[in-house]
Write a protein that binds this DNA or RNA. Sequence first.
RNA 1: GGAGAGGUGGCAGAGUGGCCGAUUGCGGCGGUCUUGAAAACCGCUGUGCCGCAAGGCACCGGGGGUUCGAAUCCCUCCCUCUCCGCCA
Length: 424
Amino acid sequence: MIDLKILRDHPERVREAVGQKGADCDVDAVLEADRTRRAALREVEDLRSRRKAANAEMAALPKGSPEFRGKVGEMKRLSAELKEKEAGLRTVETAWEEAILSIPNLPHESVPVAPDPSGNRVHSTWGEAGTDNPYARPHYDIPWLEDVVDFRRGGKVTGAGFPFYRGDGARMVRALVQFFLSEAAARGYEEMYPPLLVNEASATATGQLPDKEGQMYQTVEDSLYTIPTAEVPVTNFYRDEILPEASLPLKVCAYTPCFRREAGSYGKEVRGLNRMHQFDKVELVKWVHPSRSYEELESLRDEAEALVRQLGLPYRVLLMCTGDLGFTQAKKYDIEVWAAGQQRWLEVSSCSNFEAFQARRAGTRFRDRDGGVEPVHTLNGSALAVPRILAALIENNLQADGTATVPEVIRPWFGKAVMGTPNR
RNA sequence: GGAGAGGUGGCAGAGUGGCCGAUUGCGGCGGUCUUGAAAACCGCUGUGCCGCAAGGCACCGGGGGUUCGAAUCCCUCCCUCUCCGCCA
């Protein structure tokens, strides 16, 4: 949620941000809704105040006395009017809330302004992309791939985008997750395993609702949503809580399956492991003091990068432009690994600072030294998404015999130095 | 899933229709006393919204209702606990 003070005092800044993000949102309509709400609220509170006073007078009178009965008449009139005005206020507030939730977060000043992904800036690169392995090929064309990631049977049992991992595939998913989690633990993150379904309030706090419900699967009977990322349940862990300032920064890592409907995706984007409806990911979430959130964003990005480096995958870091920022994000880095077989970059991590946007919606605040209460800043980043890492590892590490070497750091968990079946 | 009991401020726990946003205890903060500490005593100690401010309004699990008036009565949903059933 936007800071109301900024909206009221500097609507031009909000208008500019909405334009830069290409958001579908009428700032002036929101301002109007805000004025309407405040006017209605004052009316109602004035009436309530008068009724309260009348009630106090009445309570001091002997019950059933003529004066008492006279007061009842006055109270009746006040209450009737109040009831009407309160109903009006409810309508106005519903509209206000909807309006206010439609305003996206403001981009940070360091974010390049551009309407579409072509405006994303390459922040850094690591390793050699494109010039390497002569045996590389797209992972979905590798003969043994279907032996370790069974899309066909996944499609039969559930649907497209829900594969079975088996044998080396299943083991590799587990090995990667263990590697990611143990690295996060070494960096001071507390491990959590959260619920995989969340309620409406949680999905609203992190920004999936009200607009993006199409991204999530829903239960038929209990209005619960499957999580598109661990960000949702984990960020909501401290919803409606006031944290001691001394506890910040709080750092949590969580491995979860993630579920995304991905309606409208097609083509090479969704081939093989590139984009699926269910995938595994380790997510890092931080709650930090507002004065430190941009340093924390950099360290978050560093931590995600370190994982990719240890896996030996060439990658680049993009600083996302305004037009490619999500609704809730103030600043975001994407980390993309080079998949030598497909000859393309695959996004494996996204590290974002939400500033106070989610915290305001979630009611996660901290008490500062002077006893004041203000929203924390929240951040999160993937570290990392499993399937695309797996795809890149296989493609980049293919050998002449058709098998793929396994990075050193994964071997303790994977138990072998190669995966796959040699050519015959 | 069935039966019962509950959900009140950081915690404990009063309050069953009208100065109750709420008695009290504990905890926390400040002070007095003390060489220091403890004890004792005194004071303060929720959040949100509206307002330039003074101040006002709301919140006793959520929502709705009855009533001139609801923490208190009714309905409904959610959650917790106990017992039974079922299970990993």
